[in-house]
Computed example of a mutant assay.
Amino acid sequence: MKRIISLTFILVSSLFLAQNTKYTDAEIKKKLDSIKAEGNLLFSLENSSWHSTDLARENKKINGNFGGYLTYKNNDTVKTVILHKDRNLVIAEYSFTNNSKKPIKENLYQRNLNSNENNLKNIRSKVIAQLSDPKYEVGVPNGFNLNIITIPFEESYKNYVITGSSEANVIPFGNDYLFITDKEGNIISNKKFHSRLIPTMTSMPEGGIVTMSTHSHLKTNPFISATDICTFKLYAPFTKLEEFSVYSPSLDGYMIYNYKKDSLIKSKDFK
Rank of each mutant, 00 (worst) to 15 (best):
F244L: 03
G208M: 11
L89P: 00
V78T: 12
G68R: 09
V138R: 12
K126C: 04
V127A: 05
Q110E: 15
V81K: 12
N40L: 15
L17I: 06
M212F: 03
N114S: 01
L120E: 05
I28C: 03
Q130H: 02
I256C: 01
S245F: 01
L234F: 05
I229C: 04
L89D: 14
A226V: 02
Q19P: 00
G39W: 04
K31N: 09
K233D: 04
N258F: 03
T227Q: 07
Y157A: 05
K36P: 00
A92I: 02
N118Y: 05
I91W: 10
L17Y: 09
A26F: 10
L264E: 04
R3C: 01
L264V: 02
S263C: 00
T200W: 09
L11I: 05
F193H: 10
E242C: 02
T220H: 04
Y259P: 00
C230Q: 09
L7I: 08
K240W: 04
H51K: 12
G68N: 09
S156P: 00
G67W: 09
L89G: 01
N63Q: 11
Y72L: 12
F43M: 07
T77K: 13
K271L: 14
K271N: 10
I151H: 10
K102W: 01
S115D: 14
L146S: 04
R87T: 11
P199N: 11
T8K: 11
I91G: 06
I224H: 01
P172K: 10
